[in-house]
Nucleic acid binder design. Structure first.
Lengths: 229, 229
DNA sequence: CGTTCTATTGAAGAGTATCAAGCCAAGTGG
DNA sequence: CCACTTGGCTTGATACTCTTCAATAGAACG
């Protein structure tokens, strides 16, 4: 096991981040930090960004597109722990190795940051502050997701997921950049169950989908919220 | 939403924590920090420590005993996100309010820390370093637990849970301080399923239980690990 | 248009939940 | 010391949700 975030530079940033009146939940992309100290990278759909066990020398911020991070069981069962949207930071590790696989879901542009002290400490620790906020948001999302995975029905999972997406995307109409398989592996279901639950919500009038089924309009957010609890 | 960790004092600590060669995984209680700047509190079994929505003005470190933190759905379904053993820190929030309920599982002694800068910054930031390490460990455990909840069978969940407990407790013989109901609500199962899976592992010779069923000896850790993946 | 890929739908089956006893250990009071 | 109670754990029978297997439908692309 090696140094992970691996920087003394993170410390001042943490303090500052925590002093902000709360962590920004709506994840406003902070364009100021995008140009900072990071190189750029573009990924084609399904392109691997890093794999479990890779040296975790860098972390990433999504500029555009969507990224999935996931773990695998030996027999191939997959759990997508999160989808990362523009503005999100992922790939920050405590240890020296990545504990996940990361792949682009769509064509994706990233900013790649080396995790040395220098880069994080620069600019008054703006980037480091972002990293810490990202970690805390990840933890909160993971905690909410455990409730979903442990205790919610298929329909409730879909409702929760769609609400969450619409919140992050910021509108009642949401694109679904990921496949049903991706959704299934995120929600602890099978493709078929996802499809059925979506269809059911649609028939009940809570949501509406275009012919290609790759977007959703939340017709009755109140009812969805009741379902999601 | 308010300041959460709420301290400038955390920043230097974060840096130091991250510079340590990896985060201590076996969670060795750091007795040096226990006496520091915190008041003590003792809780009877099932006593509430804090509830969801409470102002998060303090966080906690377990000295002895076990704590469960959980979320509830409106109809009472419960998800225990974690059990906290001696040396663990819990109750650290990004926002101004606790997002969980916390209760003592057994008779428990805690150290209570106010989350002001002063306390965290003191002593060369030793406490703050612990807080950051605790957050990262929480995140990693949450991620592993999502894989369990989303993709593992009942038997695999029990195997994983017992291995994890034995690792944290540090021995092949593990006390089970929590009830079957607590285990069920942590593993996304029912009491009956937990009981059946435990019995099954016992019949297969992978584990052994005393008559009162509140402890486990791991007879075949290799087979358990294979199950847990 | 045909091919391909993804999503949907249907039927059958597996695994877990639910409902209902029964069991066992510990505690209580006679 | 021994019923009696109590609470948690286990076991059994049945139900139900979701999965699995299989086929169809629909959109995207050449």
């Amino acid at each position: 096991m090696q140094t992970a975030l691996a920087t003394a530079g993170l410390a001042p940033v943490l303090a500052t981040a925590l002093l902000d009146r709360g962590v920004p939940r709506a994840a406003p992309p902070q364009p100021a930090a995008e140009a900072r100290a990071g190189t750029r990278r573009t990924c084609a759909p399904d392109e691997e960004i890093f794999a479990e066990g890779d040296r975790a020398g860098t972390f990433y911020k999504v500029v555009s597109g969507v990224v999935r991070t996931y773990k695998l069981l030996s027999d191939g069962r997959r759990q997508i722990d999160a989808f990362h949207l523009p503005g999100d930071i992922f790939g920050v590790e405590a240890g020296g190795e990545h504990r996940f696989n990361a792949e682009a879901v769509t064509e994706t542009r990233l900013v790649v940051h080396r995790r040395e002290a220098r880069a994080l400490a620069g600019d008054d620790g703006l980037l480091a502050r972002e990293v810490v906020a990202a970690m805390m948001r990840s933890l909160e999302r993971a905690q909410d997701h455990m409730l979903l995975l442990g205790r919610k029905s298929a329909k409730e999972r879909i409702a929760t997921f769609l609400l969450c997406l619409s919140q992050r995307a910021g509108g009642a109409a949401v694109e679904l950049p990921m496949s049903r398989t991706d959704m299934a592996d995120h929600l602890g279901l099978t493709v078929e169950s996802v499809s059925r639950a979506v269809t059911q919500l649609e028939r009940e009038g809570l949501i509406e989908l275009p012919p290609n089924r790759r977007a959703v309009v939340l017709r009755d957010p109140r009812a969805l919220r009741r379902l999601a609890d």
